[in-house]
Every structure is written in structure tokens, then in C-alpha cells.
């Protein structure tokens, strides 16, 4: 039996090294700039919990488990809302694949196991393109996209 097909696949090419992309996903001073004033907190070991928090208030917005962590190549996380949030959906899964590509890096973000048409699906499909575009800009030019340096409008 083949695995179900991924729901979203995003690719960006970044003129940098895999190590820098890996570090950027976890460095609060970087995520603050390209990920809407948020930070990702974990020890990044398989089995550990990770949380996506507001950089200033520490409010947890997304949380899950580290399924795989192979620096600086692959990071797999479960991705869901914190417990107790109304209208909770089962957690989805995000895979970051960081590959060297002709002297630069190809970053592939795959998001699957999302509830079809659910609130999380709507949120992430608007979120990933600016976040990845901003990560590329930050690593290549030192400047993130302005829209990702503040919290998303909700």
C-alpha cells in the first residue's frame, strides 16, 4: 500500500548552507523576524515536545512532538493546537527537508495529515508561503519581509 499523498508541498531555493537553514528554524532571534514574532522551543530530540510560541508573551500557538531530527537535513514534527482549544483537530505533520542544491539549498516543507477543509488547513496555506519567502530573504539579504516581523492579524 502506498502512503497517502501529501496535502501541501512548498519549495524555496536559498543561497546559503544547510546548517544556517537548520539553525534559523530554531533560533528565536531569527524566527522572530521571519515567522510573525514567534519562536520555536524544544531540545529538538526525537520524542521531545516542541512549542511554537509568541516571542514576547510566550503564549503557545502550535505544539507537537519531534518525530525525527537529523541535523542539518531533516526535521519532522507533529503540528497541532494546544490542548483544550475549542474546535480542536487531530494533529497534522510537518516535514522540513534541507538539501544542498547546486551550491545553494533547497528547502522543502511538506504539510500533511491535515483535516480537509479544516481551520488549520486554511491557516497554514496562508502562512507557509510568506514565512518561507521571508526566511529566504532574511538568509540572503539580512532583511525579512516586513509582514512576517509582526503577529498575524487574527
Amino acid at each position: 500500500m502506498t502512503s497517502p499523498k501529501p496535502q501541501f508541498v512548498y519549495v524555496t531555493y536559498i543561497q546559503t548552507t544547510p546548517e544556517k537553514v537548520w539553525a534559523a528554524l530554531q533560533d528565536p532571534e531569527m524566527t522572530r523576524q521571519f515567522w510573525g514574532l514567534h519562536k520555536n522551543v524544544s531540545d529538538w530530540k526525537p520524542g521531545s515536545r516542541w512549542t511554537h510560541q509568541d516571542y514576547e508573551t510566550h503564549e503557545v500557538r502550535v505544539t507537537g512532538q519531534v518525530l525525527e531530527a537529523e541535523p542539518p537535513k531533516k526535521l519532522v514534527l507533529t503540528w497541532g493546537w494546544p490542548e483544550g482549544r475549542p474546535g480542536a483537530e487531530p494533529p497534522s505533520r510537518v516535514t522540513f527537508l534541507i538539501e544542498p542544491f547546486m551550491g545553494s539549498v533547497r528547502l522543502t516543507v511538506t504539510h500533511d495529515e491535515l483535516v480537509e477543509g479544516g481551520a488549520m488547513m486554511k491557516g497554514i496555506s496562508q502562512g507557509w508561503p510568506p514565512i518561507l519567502s521571508s526566511l529566504k530573504s532574511l538568509l540572503e539579504t539580512g532583511q525579512p519581509l516586513a509582514m512576517t516581523t509582526k503577529r498575524w492579524g487574527r
Binding site: K5, V9, Y10, P129, P130
Partner: peptide, 26 residues
């Protein structure tokens, strides 16, 4: 890079990749 490709077994799956459009938007 407007279409990203994923292989599932022998099947080649095509995905809309809007990241380059985001660069243009910005």
C-alpha cells in the same frame, strides 16, 4: 519553481508552489 514535485512510488505528483509568487507580491 511554481510547481513542486513529489514522488510517491512510481507516481509523480505535482504541487502548486506559491512561494515565488509571494516574492513578487512582496
Amino acid at each position: 519553481n511554481l510547481v513542486a514535485v513529489v514522488w510517491r512510488g512510481r507516481e509523480k505528483l505535482h504541487y502548486l508552489n506559491p512561494v515565488p509568487l509571494q516574492d513578487i507580491y512582496e
